[in-house]
């Protein structure tokens, strides 16, 4: 992939939140990291529920040197946001939009579609349970499900199928908060000594701090968003949780992996290749 330092800009789109202070943090951090690599003329973020808004982003990148703007949704899957909200708010006509100012805006795939998500899930699972032999461990990919906005269930299922084929873990399950197979039933659905749970979300929030831990039986309802950041993170630091004769390991949201910055850049390469592109060297 050619160096885009002189003519391309990058817009990373996140969901953001009006209640969760941690929602936009990964997206902002990836933007700062990619900016440090000087790979694009400009790197900016925009959010649906935070500032700057997607509407604001229409006024970014007015530098005449910028010929293309790559828009990468930092979302776990395709869905309502990637298909309806983002194109509408940014006034995108499709994959390629030519603006009146001569700029071309290129709408890339969401990061969750990238094949490297599988690697990330495996890496995260290994990191939080280094001592648990995969052969006696069940890996659970925990997603939202029944989600009008994102097809998170489908994406988690796809990842689980890919990891199952690798034949590393005793079992690989895709469980959901709001549709069967339910996370709450994890004890019945698993029979290994070790169980590793990775939340398939783009940022940590109420779901990963509280809802899923409550469903797993490792936390009580406690309005986690009112706690300090350190107190919220405690839930990820007490591994393994001993429940009966089981050891349960619980990870933070997959979207907080620093490697996501590479995956964001990769979506730009993929756009230009029309397929899986190779990672640029920076």
């Amino acid at each position: 992939m050619e160096n885009r330092q002189t003519t391309s800009a990058l817009l990373i789109v996140g969901h953001g939140s009006t209640v969760n202070p941690d929602s936009s943090a990964p997206t902002l951090a990836y933007a700062a990291e990619i900016r440090r690599r000087h790979f694009f003329v400009d790197v900016a973020c925009a959010f649906w529920k935070e500032e700057p808004s997607l509407r604001d982003a229409r006024f970014f990148f007015d530098d005449s040197a910028i010929k293309e703007v790559y828009v990468v949704p930092n979302f776990i899957s395709e869905g309502y946001f990637t298909q309806t909200v983002i194109p509408r708010e940014l006034e995108l006509g499709g994959r390629i939009t030519n603006r009146g100012n001569g700029q071309t805006w290129k709408y890339c795939e969401p990061v969750g579609n990238d094949s490297e998500m599988t690697e990330l899930l495996l890496k995260r699972a290994k990191e939080i349970a280094p001592e648990a032999p995969a052969g006696s461990t069940t890996l659970i990919i925990a997603a939202h499900g029944t989600d009008l906005n994102e097809n998170s269930a489908g994406a988690a299922k796809r990842e689980a199928e890919k990891i199952r084929k690798l034949d590393r873990y005793a079992a690989v399950l895709n469980l959901y908060m709001e549709e069967p197979p339910l996370i709450t039933h994890w004890m019945k659905l698993t029979d290994t000594k070790n169980v590793v749970v990775v939340p398939f979300f783009i940022s940590d929030g109420l779901h990963s701090y509280e809802d899923i831990p409550v469903m797993l039986g490792i936390a009580k309802k406690r309005s986690a968003l009112n706690l300090s950041a350190a107190a919220r993170d405690e839930i990820f630091r007490q591994n393994p949780y001993k429940i009966g004769n089981r050891s349960l390991y619980y990870a933070s949201a997959i979207g907080t992996e620093p490697q996501l910055a590479d995956i964001i850049i990769k979506q730009v390469a993929r756009f230009d290749c029309g397929s899986e592109g190779s990672l640029p060297t920076s």
């Binding site: 700057p52 808004s53 006024f59 007015d62």
Partner: peptide, 23 residues
């Protein structure tokens, strides 16, 4: 300033250059 008041500088520049579309 972009972190303190996200997007406000870009809006200001667009406004000064008569490019800021209001809705």
């Amino acid at each position: 300033l972009d972190y303190f008041y996200p997007g406000r500088l870009a809006a200001l520049v667009a406004w000064k250059e008569n490019r800021l579309k209001t809705t």
